[in-house]
Design a protein around this nucleic acid. Sequence first.
DNA 1: GTCTATAACCGGATAGAC
DNA 2: GTCTATCCGGTTATAGAC
Lengths: 239, 239
Amino acid sequence: MSAVATLSSKGQKTRERILEVALELFQERGYEATTMRMIATAAGVSLGNSYYYFPTKEHLVQGFYNRIHIDLVAASKEQLAKARSLRERLRVVMRAQVDVMLPYHAVSGALFRSALTPGSPLSPFSEASGPARRKAINYLREVIDGSGSRFPADLAANLPELLWLYELGLVMFWVHDNSDGQRRTYELIEDSSDAIVRLLGMANLPGLRAIRKRMLTWVAAVIKENAGPLVLEGTSTAD
Amino acid sequence: MSAVATLSSKGQKTRERILEVALELFQERGYEATTMRMIATAAGVSLGNSYYYFPTKEHLVQGFYNRIHIDLVAASKEQLAKARSLRERLRVVMRAQVDVMLPYHAVSGALFRSALTPGSPLSPFSEASGPARRKAINYLREVIDGSGSRFPADLAANLPELLWLYELGLVMFWVHDNSDGQRRTYELIEDSSDAIVRLLGMANLPGLRAIRKRMLTWVAAVIKENAGPLVLEGTSTAD
DNA sequence: GTCTATAACCGGATAGAC
DNA sequence: GTCTATCCGGTTATAGAC
């Protein structure tokens, strides 16, 4: 699933080094201003060689996505173990998500540029992003399962995907958030996590049931249409 | 607000011709595969000269946005005059929006690529997109006002912006929609317009009022944060 | 001051030898 | 797995024509 079919351990290290310096340079100078030539030089390889490991500049961004998810889990694991309510568990994870992305805020626009381009391998819905996506969704499944909350079957089956879309939305908000330290995003997390939990609790209100069913159908369609066959009724395509 | 300070009538025509052939070529060959050199040649100007009218390739995309809104109004005006209910009026406009974009579906990914990049002049929230955005929002205001519906003041004041975000969401869905003729998007329009009207009707349900208020605050923040000072309490910054 | 052209630059990407 | 040489296309510099 990586850019290169098989990679010797030396190759692994070279690849890692290139990604490392690339992410550093992106932070320091921005995405556009960082040239492949700079990256190659800083990593101590030739320009052509860097393309052996990352077929395009954008593939370096995919490396960034993967890195972020690993950091997210590392940053939230202990806190998550201590949180009980779904509200609090959601908050822990979403705060951690924003925390680990912090150093990249200035470049985040460029880094997430391709995120919503259909067909792009960088799209979170793409085949190439499948492993990262499934990891993220499965982590959210843990977030839900670890709370005591129970929901109607159709809702429960799609809740991880639903929360994943919520996470994507939060990230998009954060990208556009220019308040200092992205304070507003943290506020939004407090507020929206609460709203979500309340809405979920009301899912069975008589007037809302029909709308809920329709919305779920469409959310499932969005993900399916974009990401290929996925969970629809609870059977997980686990990683 | 155009790329060039002042433009003679001859200049206007040249600019128009460049945009024309560019949009044709985008449709025929895609965005990436269409080079500035091709566009210049097809328009009968030198490469350097085309940059006099469109400072970057992306500025041609902005020309596309403007074109689309004009087409949308033209395609929906009469039908809109005949539609009474908010539901039907919404449908008319959203269907027309999708209709006029049809020829561009194959390239839409590339064309909307920059749409969600913060800071990009192509972002629908950007300063440069201000005129187009205000036109779109004002058209939606007409859609609402022309229906008999009345809403609580805070909701009414933000409803045009809210529906504009809905329109953006629909366009994003359409971009990713690979069903034939984008059938699913048309279905989504039927379904979601209905859901929206129902939700608006329930805006005063006891359990929902608090959530509604909070959501409105955040929607206002999203638009304000990104698009600069805008309507918050009903005073329009009309075009 | 409005418009047009030619030449060059720069950086992402590729070819192909070793 | 690594390199050098080259291509290609967006963009810019700049000189001049109407």
